[in-house]
Write a protein that binds this DNA or RNA. Structure first.
Lengths: 138, 138
DNA sequence: TCAAATTAGTAAACTATGTTTACAGATTGC
DNA sequence: GCAATCTGTAAACATAGTTTACTAATTTGA
């Protein structure tokens, strides 16, 4: 189990415990990018480094289960605005709480100082590494 | 793109450039555990935290393309010994060289000191975190 | 200005990588 | 000796992505 897999499976587990039984890992990963202020599927796809067709499937799912809704974008009629429903806001809230819970468990395990160092190392150093190259799909 | 995904896709890319066109990411991930001295599929499955059925498929693939071969284990007739073929040895060599190349590119990007710190932080801190819980499959 | 190139969303077929469930044969513990 | 457990095997299924293809809307440039 890698760090990534552990993080996303922990998040998924906690979200299910909070009643979001129909959310998958892909749904939650996608959701994080909406939280960053993105409002269009193609932007999310580019930022996630996956195809817009993959993102499309997730948005279609999330619309079907009532987490978000799509609306015509008046500024560009090719695009659709991705908007949160009431349940979408609850999901976002519960996701933030779950992530805080996970971080608290890590801190409990390795201590606040090393957690801070680890966060710093990952943000600075991996950030620099990943800024180097992108094999993004079409 | 996460750090994990970046690492494995870089490794896969370099291995393909070295002529191993038929190897997949799952093949290479599995291979790393053979390099650690494991000789039986069930051991690999446990260490990787995946089902032994998933490992079985990979071994079957790798046997088919001539990277490894299976032999009856004389000490336990339930088990089979996983052995390298000549091509398997070449794969292992090329994988080590590719990883060294990747690490060199990271070092070039963030410098030797921060690379060392990052490696330390990941080994110590994430190791401690992942040692905490295991949702391993049956 | 208008044709060409690009971009957004949609959709189907396929791929990669896992899981769950099931079973038979070998081994181990009591 | 027999039940529990472990091995490899295998099929059916799940998840999350890709490639290819199409239409409509927009942007670019000669």
């Amino acid at each position: 189990m890698t760090a990534d897999q552990w993080l996303s499976s922990s998040l998924l587990h906690l979200m299910r415990a909070r009643g979001h039984k129909d959310l998958t890992g892909a749904h939650l990963a996608f959701f994080a990018f909406l939280e960053c202020g993105l409002t269009h599927a193609s932007d999310v796809a580019r930022r996630m480094g996956i195809s817009r067709q993959a993102v499309y499937k997730v948005t279609r799912d999330l619309e079907r289960i009532g987490v978000l809704r799509l609306e015509e974008d008046p500024t560009d009629r090719r695009q659709k605005l991705i908007l949160m429903t009431a349940r979408g806001d609850r999901v976002a809230l519960d996701a933030r709480a779950s992530l805080a819970e996970i971080e608290a468990r890590i801190e409990e395990r390795i201590g606040p100082v090393r957690l801070d160092q680890l966060r710093g190392a990952l943000a600075r150093d991996w950030g620099a590494v990943l800024g180097l190259e992108g094999d993004e799909p079409s």
